[in-house]
Design a protein around this nucleic acid. Sequence first.
DNA 1: AAAAATGTTATGGCTGACCTTATTATTCCA
DNA 2: TGGAATAATAAGGTCAGCCATAACATTTTT
Lengths: 222, 222
Amino acid sequence: MTIMHLSESTEMYLKAMAELGGQDVIATARLAERLNVTPVSVSEMVRRLGEQGLVSHTPYKGVHLTKKGREVACNVLRRQRLWECFLYDHLKIDWSQVYEFACSLEHATAPEVTEALAGFLGNPQTCPRGNPIPAADGSFKPLDAMPLSEAKLGQTAQVLAVNATATDVLKYLQEKNILPGREVTVIEVAPMQGPLTLHVGGKDVALGLSMAEFVLVKKIKN
Amino acid sequence: MTIMHLSESTEMYLKAMAELGGQDVIATARLAERLNVTPVSVSEMVRRLGEQGLVSHTPYKGVHLTKKGREVACNVLRRQRLWECFLYDHLKIDWSQVYEFACSLEHATAPEVTEALAGFLGNPQTCPRGNPIPAADGSFKPLDAMPLSEAKLGQTAQVLAVNATATDVLKYLQEKNILPGREVTVIEVAPMQGPLTLHVGGKDVALGLSMAEFVLVKKIKN
DNA sequence: AAAAATGTTATGGCTGACCTTATTATTCCA
DNA sequence: TGGAATAATAAGGTCAGCCATAACATTTTT
C-alpha cells in the first residue's frame, strides 16, 4: 500500500461515505449534507478523490468507494471508534460528545498509536454507539441490522447501533433513551414521511424518519 | 478569556516560544529553526500573532509572549505533556517518539478532554521528558535548572529534563542515555564551541553544544 | 412531453500558511 | 567607523479547500 499523506478533509469524505454507504453508491447531495458543505464543493472534492483512485464517480448516479478508498475509510473508522471507546470508557466523556471529540483526535493519530491504543483497550469490537470496529487489516463485518425507519407498526426491536454523528442528534437520542441495547416498539407511523412514535423505556417518543434512518435495529418480535 | 479558534500553526508558534523562551525575548531566527520555516515566514506570522495580541515584537530585538499569549502557550504545553504521559505510561510508545505523536494529538484536543485526561492520569506534574506540566489555570513553575551547555569541566549534574522536540535528537539522547534522572559528568569541554564530552552510565559521550542547550540539569557536585 | 428538481461544470474569489527573490534597515564587531 | 551579519519588508507565487453565481445536463415528476 502506497504511503501517502491524506488530508483531514479527504479522510472526512471517505469516512462519511463508509458511514452512510458501506458498499453502495451514495448521492453527492447526501455527502454535502453530512459534511456541511455545498454540493459544488462535493463535486470538486469527488473529482480529486477520483483522481487519487479513492472513489469512483458516475455523473448523476452517485459515487462509491473503491477498494483502496474503502481500506482507507476502514482505517479511519478504526481510529475514530477506538478513540470513542477510550473517551467513553476511560475518560468518562459524555456519550453524546464522544463522537465529535474522537473525530478530531482521529485525524491526528499515527498507526503506531492506533495499534497501541487498540491493545490498551483490549481490542474492543464495538464503539459506544454500537458500531463495529474494523480490524487492523481493514477487515470489517457490517452489522446485520435494519434502519429503524423501515420498521413496521407494532414492531419491537432492539437498538444495535446509532450511526448518527452530529452532536445535537446524539444528544437528542440520548435524552430519549434511544441507545444501543434498548428495546423500542413502533406504536405509530405517521403518513407523509411523518415521524415514528416509539415506546421506549416506559415513555413515548416521536422520532423523525431521517433520524430513524441512523438508528440500526434488530427485530425481536412481530 | 475570549473564545477563539487558534490554528494549529498559531499553537505551534506559541508553544515553540514557551519552550525556548519562557519569559524572555526570542530571536525570530530561533523560531525559524525550531519550526523549520524560513525567517520570512516567521516575520509574517509574528506580525499576525502581534495583531491578535499574542506576542509583542520589537523589530531587530526579538519577540516575546504577551500575558494572553503565555496563557495560550501554557495551555498548549499542558495538553501536549499530558498526552506524552498517556502515550508513554499507558500505550508504551517509545520515549523518543512520544513527543511527536503527542504534538499531533495536542492540536485536536478539546478542553473537556484535556481535563478528563489529566484526571485519568492522576494529574501528573511532569512529562516523560521531565518538563513540568502547567496547571489547568495556566500557572506554571519553571524548572530550577541550567542548560547542560553551561556546565563547567568536571561538573557532575543530574538531568532534570530534556527540552528537545525533534525525534532524531530525542533518539540520539535516548541512545546515549542522557535521560531525566541520569547523572552526567563533564569530562571535556572542547574549544571553539566544540562538543562536551560527558561520562554517563559508564560510557563517554560527545554532545554538541546546541544539543546540550536543551538538556536541563541540576548541579550535584563540584 | 414539458416542467421541476437535482446534479455537474465553469469561472472567479478568498484564506492561511507557506515559499522565493530582492531590497532595505539595523546591529554587531573588528 | 565601515563592512559583515542579521533582521525586516516588499512583491509575487503556490496549494488545498472552501465559497458564490451562473450555465448546462440529466433525471424525475407531473
